[in-house]
Amino acid sequence: MTPDLAREILDLTAEHLVLVGVAMAIAVAVAIPAGILLTRRAPLQRWVIGFANVMQTVPSLALFGFLIPLPFIGGIGKHTAIVALVLYALLPVLRNTLTGILGVDPAVRESAVAMGMTGRQLLFEVELPLAARTILAGVRVATVTTIGTATIAAAIGGGGLGVFIFRGLASVDSTLILAGALPAALIALAADGGLGWVEKKFSPA
């Protein structure tokens, strides 16, 4: 491996991590509060979960493509890639937030209310701690998926390890493809292991 290639692997890995990190931060910041809100609005659940489901079924390359012509969020570059990654990451986090909170034993919830807990205390002291493990599992799945999907960002000028893969595909150079795919796989494995470890720190519901 030439020093130039090694250097580029490091740069693109860093770029990849930024794409994934920013996308996941936004997805978590949107999906967890939205999931909490949805547990209080049963009729909305179908619609929102439906939307998130549809987002997941759009082939990722197509979704990136669809976003390009859109004003503000679209165009060529990183921010369009991040929007697409966020749309993909929303569903697992949202769904697990809902499942986790709705899965809290009704007897536990009822006794919390009967003890005189306020809505906020019920949420922060009972529902979220008991749902934490499930929510984190959603974050883990979303993160691992996003690490893979982010390789497509390169197709719309978003950078990241996908740059190698697309370059390798164009020049039929499997070393280049590996230079992109291998670090991406390693990051995914590390994220899976790390988040799985955090998950186990929380008590099962």
Partner: peptide, 15 residues
């Protein structure tokens, strides 16, 4: 509610 004690079957303790 804070001045009424409430005991249910299976206790409903926080796990």
């Amino acid at each position: 509610r804070r001045r009424i004690g409430y005991v249910i079957q299976e206790a409903g303790l926080f796990p």
